[in-house]
Measured scan of single mutants.
Amino acid sequence: YFQGQLNAMAHQIQEMFPQVPYHLVLQDLQLTRSVEITTDNILEGRI
């Protein structure tokens, strides 16, 4: 994955969860590489 793709995914998640800091979303995406998994992590309070 290149950074631009991760940034696009992070923006997509931020639209759904504007209360979660962008850098935390991006940090999780770098591990998961998945909008779905990061979204689940937010919903389950891991982020």
Rank of each mutant, 00 (worst) to 15 (best):
M16I: 09
Q30C: 09
A10F: 05
E44K: 15
V25H: 02
I42H: 01
F2N: 15
Q14G: 08
E36C: 10
R46Q: 05
M9H: 06
I37R: 13
I13F: 03
D40I: 15
V25C: 04
R33I: 07
I37Y: 07
A8Y: 11
M16G: 05
F17Q: 01
A10R: 03
P21Y: 05
E44A: 15
D28H: 03
Y22M: 09
L43W: 06
D40K: 15
I13T: 01
R33Q: 15
L31I: 14
Q27E: 12
D28Q: 03
Y1M: 11
T32G: 04
I42Y: 03
L24G: 02
A10W: 07
Q14A: 12
Q14S: 13
T38D: 01
L6D: 04
T32K: 00
I47E: 01
P18K: 05
Q14D: 02
V35H: 05
Y1F: 13
N7H: 15
D40E: 14
M16P: 00
L31V: 14
F2C: 09
G45D: 05
I37H: 09
Q12F: 13
Q30I: 14
D28R: 03
Q14P: 00
E36T: 09
T32V: 02
G4T: 11
E36S: 11
M9P: 01
L6Q: 04
A10E: 01
Q14I: 14
F2V: 12
P18N: 04
Q30L: 14
Q30E: 14
R46D: 03
T39F: 07
V25E: 00
R46A: 06
L6G: 02
T38V: 02
A8P: 04
Q12Y: 12
Q12T: 09
M9Y: 09
L6R: 02
V35S: 06
M9Q: 07
E36K: 13
T39R: 11
Q14F: 10
T38L: 02
M9T: 05
H23C: 09
H11S: 13
L29C: 03
M9L: 13
E15K: 14
E15F: 10
L24V: 09
R33F: 14
F2S: 15
A10S: 05
Q27R: 11
N41I: 02
Y22W: 09
Q12P: 00
P18T: 04
V25A: 05
F17W: 05
Q12A: 13
Q30P: 00
G45C: 06
T32S: 06
R33G: 15
I13P: 00
I42C: 06
F2E: 14
E44Q: 15
I13Q: 00
T38P: 01
L26G: 00
I47M: 07
Y1P: 09
P21K: 06
L31S: 11
Q14Y: 13
Q19V: 06
Q27F: 10
P18H: 03
Q5V: 12
E44W: 11
L31C: 07
P21S: 08
T32R: 01
Q12M: 12
N7M: 15
L31M: 13
Q27N: 10
T39W: 08
A8T: 10
Y1K: 11
E36V: 10
V25L: 11
P21R: 04
H11T: 11
V25Y: 02
Y22I: 11
P18G: 03
Q27Y: 11
Q3D: 14
Y22R: 06
E36D: 09
A10Y: 05
L31F: 12
Q5S: 12
G45A: 05
L26A: 03
N7D: 14
T39K: 12
Q27A: 14
Q14C: 10
L6V: 07
F17M: 03
L26V: 09
Q27M: 12
A8G: 07
E36W: 08
Q19P: 02
Q5K: 11
F17I: 02
T39D: 02
E36P: 06
D28P: 05
T38Q: 01
M9F: 09
D40L: 15
L26K: 04
A8E: 13
T39P: 00
R46Y: 07
I42W: 04
I42F: 04
P21I: 06
L31H: 11
F17T: 00
D28E: 03
Q5L: 12
M16V: 07
P18L: 03
A8R: 05
I37M: 12
A8Q: 13
N41W: 03
Q12S: 10
P21L: 06
L43I: 11
Q19N: 14
L31D: 08
S34H: 03
T39S: 09
Q12I: 13
N41H: 09
S34D: 08
P21Q: 05
Q3V: 09
L31Y: 11
M9V: 07
I13Y: 00
Q30W: 14
N41D: 01
D28F: 04
Q3I: 10
H23V: 08
I37N: 06
L29D: 01
H23D: 11
T32D: 02
Q3C: 10
Q12V: 12
V20K: 01
T32A: 01
E15H: 13
N41V: 05
I13A: 01
L6N: 02
N7I: 15
